[in-house]
Design a protein around this nucleic acid. Structure first.
Lengths: 246, 246
DNA sequence: TACCGCAACTGGTCCAGACAACCATACGAC
DNA sequence: GTCGTATGGTTGTCTGGACCAGTTGCGGTA
């Protein structure tokens, strides 16, 4: 059985990406092994070399493949960060870690933006934003406290939603067609204060990871400013860094 | 004055990248503004559209530009993470933060790899690696304790180097031609223990950020496994995440 | 045997052009 | 005035070549 790459709603380079991904997932092409050369791939799937190169380039940027000039293209060794580096909300993050996500809504309201929030969302101080504060659970245990401020035309409709059951990022993407596309995040180590310690069920003074995140949708429009704290003993953050090319 | 793009040792797409970078750095093209269309750029610099597209695509991946189909390509808003996300050693990291880096060597020795180190560097347990433990300073104040284990053919020559003055990553790149190309890192919040607290000049039980990093050079060959602790009150980690395309 | 150079591969760069998808605007019909 | 449509701009996808640069193995030569 040979998959083939056809013209249609999905671009050819994307179809080839999926085929390569599947070969790797299935183990047919194992980590460290050489994949077919670019010229071989174009011939096999009836596409031009530039198109095949686009597929390989994007997968290499994701860390799934790496190239060596003069030798060939290899399957990368699996990275812990690979599944955890993508921009996701808490729900997807927990699933990638093979834990069961949960949420308890602490507050959900329209709330006048303070200075820090207004600056990051590029709105005026005092403009109402949808503010959601949730205790986040992993396998039914408290893991984090997450405070999201959302600002877009009609965001007050979020008040009607059940955010204990639904994923905020899922709603944004599917219901409101404002998919989170990019985020900038900062992390620092801190100690749990009184109220935070109570919610996370740890002692006051326990280590916590504090994060601040600005999330943008298409057109580089910021829609969310989220601050979270994570239990230091139960959460690790993974990342991958690359050197500038050339 | 018009820069021009010529054939030569540097590829044309790279020359155009640098020209665009310079336009942005100088403020000639300001954040949020539209840059010339792809067709205009190829004509102006005498290159083909595919080549111009490669320049723009790479700059967009770095977050410096963003595209909107049907409208054009825009200059991205400056991101804190932009300068801090690249794979760098402590020295470069501090310079990007506009702080003066410093180092005090605690130990520098050949050391038999323990299990965790051997697995990450893909060598045998007990194989000697160059192990460097340094107190890292920012503006002459203690900021971090960094322990690097380096493994490559001839790494024992590092014993002769002065690692209080020189940057480890600088040496690896320039002297040994093994530039760090990619790293995978994990971060967690913890509390300073006895010895650590003393070195960092903080109280026992103060918050610290603990990191573990595996650094690879070309050919995806791991060369460094580094564990560090940073003072929680003086160090923030910045990162940027993007949604999968399509 | 030891070395060198060539040939046959690999990925890296580049071209000129084509059509599709999408977006803004202007213009006409209703 | 409002709604569709035409139009000319943008980026997105794709072709089928071309040559360059790095790697490897093979065969011939010293």
């Amino acid at each position: 059985m040979v998959e083939s790459v056809k013209s249609g709603p999905l671009p050819r380079y994307y179809q080839l990406k999926e085929i390569i991904r599947e070969r790797i997932r299935s183990g047919e092409w194992s980590p460290g092994s050489l994949i077919p050369s670019e010229r071989e791939l174009c011939e096999r799937y009836g596409i031009s070399r530039m198109t095949a190169r686009q597929s390989i380039t994007e997968l290499a940027n994701e860390g799934l493949l790496y190239r060596e000039q003069g030798k060939g293209t290899y399957v990368g060794r699996p990275k812990i960060a690979q599944q955890l580096l993508r921009l996701t909300g808490f729900t997807e993050d927990m699933r990638a870690r093979e834990q069961r996500p949960g949420a308890k809504v602490l507050t959900a309201e329209m709330w006048p933006a303070d200075e820090a929030t207004a600056e990051r969302l590029r709105i005026k101080v005092g403009q109402p934003v949808y503010r959601l504060r949730r205790l986040r659970l992993a396998d039914s245990e408290p893991l984090a406290v997450e405070t999201s401020c959302i600002s877009f035309m009609g965001c007050e409709r979020l008040l009607e939603k059940d955010l204990e059951r639904d994923s905020l990022y899922g709603l944004l993407e599917i219901v409101y067609d404002m998919p989170p596309m990019e985020a900038e995040q900062e992390l620092e180590a801190d100690l749990a204060r009184d109220e935070e310690a109570g919610l996370l069920e740890v002692e006051v003074g326990s280590p916590i990871l504090r994060t601040r995140r600005v999330t943008a949708t298409r057109r580089n429009q910021p829609i969310e400013y989220a601050t979270s704290i994570y239990r230091g003993d139960k959460y690790r953050f993974y990342t991958r860094m690359v050197r500038d090319q050339r």
